[in-house]
Design a protein around this nucleic acid. Sequence first.
DNA 1: CTGAAAGCGCTTACAG
DNA 2: CTGAAAGCGCTTACAG
Lengths: 360, 360
Amino acid sequence: MLSETGDLAKSPRRKSQAITIETVARVAGVSAMTVSNVLNNSKPVREATREAVMRAVRDLNYTPNLAAKALAGADTTRIGLLLSRDDFSFISSVLGGAVEATSALGAQLMTRRLGHQSHDEVLAAAQDVVVAGANALVLPGLYAGILQEELRNGLIDVPVVAASVGDEIEGIWSIRIDDEAAAYDMTTSLIALGHRRVGFLRAEEKHLVHKTRFAGYARALAEAGLALDPSLVVTSPLSFDSGIAAADAFLDRTDRPTAIFASNDDTASAIVAMAHKRGLRVPDDLSVAGFDDSPLALRMWPRLSSVRQPVTEIARKATELAISLARLSGETPAHRTDIIDHTIVMRESTAPLAEGLVCA
Amino acid sequence: MLSETGDLAKSPRRKSQAITIETVARVAGVSAMTVSNVLNNSKPVREATREAVMRAVRDLNYTPNLAAKALAGADTTRIGLLLSRDDFSFISSVLGGAVEATSALGAQLMTRRLGHQSHDEVLAAAQDVVVAGANALVLPGLYAGILQEELRNGLIDVPVVAASVGDEIEGIWSIRIDDEAAAYDMTTSLIALGHRRVGFLRAEEKHLVHKTRFAGYARALAEAGLALDPSLVVTSPLSFDSGIAAADAFLDRTDRPTAIFASNDDTASAIVAMAHKRGLRVPDDLSVAGFDDSPLALRMWPRLSSVRQPVTEIARKATELAISLARLSGETPAHRTDIIDHTIVMRESTAPLAEGLVCA
DNA sequence: CTGAAAGCGCTTACAG
DNA sequence: CTGAAAGCGCTTACAG
């Protein structure tokens, strides 16, 4: 999805009043060329000059005219973005954020769609988009996780920013929520409802959330003085179909958990479906919570409690960062992570544990 | 104007030999300005001249440089697009197609997001985007249906193209599938599976598909020699929540239908959920089919049979049409409709009627 | 480290 | 109906 504010486009062209590079140059007391050099880092500029220019730019609120840049033959900044072909909710938000950023900053977006998500395919796609001219890459968490070896070893030739990556990856930039804290918060919410046996559907190792979301779950149990029962933790791919299979592991047992926290909404939804198949009532017999607050959460019955991450915002920030890294010449700044706030959304799929079931 | 003029000859920067308006002008034996006038319909041009120019354009496969156009102050073509805030699957596809078209043809996309879909809000949004400068509008079917009065009466000041509108609207252009035929095909498929009591969840009147999809359903029954039982037709909003309510009307009766065909996937999914709640098995006790083949269809259990329309393609074509209409000066061509092919996708939510239930 | 000048490919007054 | 010229706001050789 694109901008929530509604406008994908720029306002109608205002010619006369526009502030040009000439204006900036005059105010800063330099030539237009020097302004250009400062802005594009294209040639070394004396520090005092650079500061004067930047001050003028800021004071005048100057924005370069993209058409003129393009016509004059400037190298366009190209941002490569890998997208999954399936993950509809996530990718439309990611795409929206990325488009916002690229169109605001005058960069070009190059997307690659991936069908499977094998290591080789992801690596090939990343390399392909770099060869095709991308100056920086934005990798949604899953792909960053899959390529973590390559990323750590600097095998990708351009700056990489991971969006919603679920955990730190040394050697790249990232914008994400604190997955550990988010999982802790949701687990704590379930415990607060009276649940003592809380199952956890854990992502596979290739997802970095494998570690962080599980850690949050474990910490919440520990703080509540509950033992972590390893048989209540089921590792599974995060697709709906895999969730169907994983549901058996939770439900085919006499000492079923009273609540299950799944690492995404697709699998949570699958667990609800299988619970219904067995004649269990949700949330009366079983509470279920997911992660992502995808559109699916409101298109199932009962509606799903979930953890929301502001994906569009994360993608926008990641893309903005990728653009500035791509435009940098000279030394690159140190890698860092920006943490964005998450939200816990409780709906009808979770409820206080029925009286009789509460363990004393 | 040949290159002997010295200045031109020793141009410091010769980029790739892109074909410019100069080239076209030379080949056509006219000035660049005349080429520009022909291409933009900006001034009257003699027919012979126009033809010579167009031939050169075609022969050289000339495409105008958008950056130069913009810089030179050409009026940008702005296409307004109204989008629903909820309908995630549909809008991401619509948006994708619209972005494809606008970026390929150098137009600018202006989107407006609608929360509710009241007549007044939709009309206000359409007017707003026109006031903001849109030269043509692309309206997803629902909105075109809501505004049909205004559209028929020519109350919108710019050309309007409806995408997936579900039925003809006099006075505007449209790109859509044949909803009647699509509903006919799906109903016929259900009948072919042995079903004799096929329920139909019908859209509200404000959706134009209210008429066409119902007509296709009715025709299929008629051709199969089946009576249309009005009590098996339930009219409902197309949201998941409304589908939950509508499901009762189908299922709270002794002579339940053996199959239900819902006018979209959200409501079909709600019917499946309510069937499960009642302990009915899908498809063993009840077959369910939807319309749209949205991502939801693969994220429910069992997977949903549905009618697929190529939304991205439809949106792209609609946007292309809107762009050419916006760029036209002088008389506008007659309204027309382009019909795009649909696909029937059968999955596990539908199955041959169990032996015992087939009426002789 | 800094600047004057040419030019990117188009369109828009302005003249015929 | 058609064209010569100026100029949109940048960047890129080239020259200090």
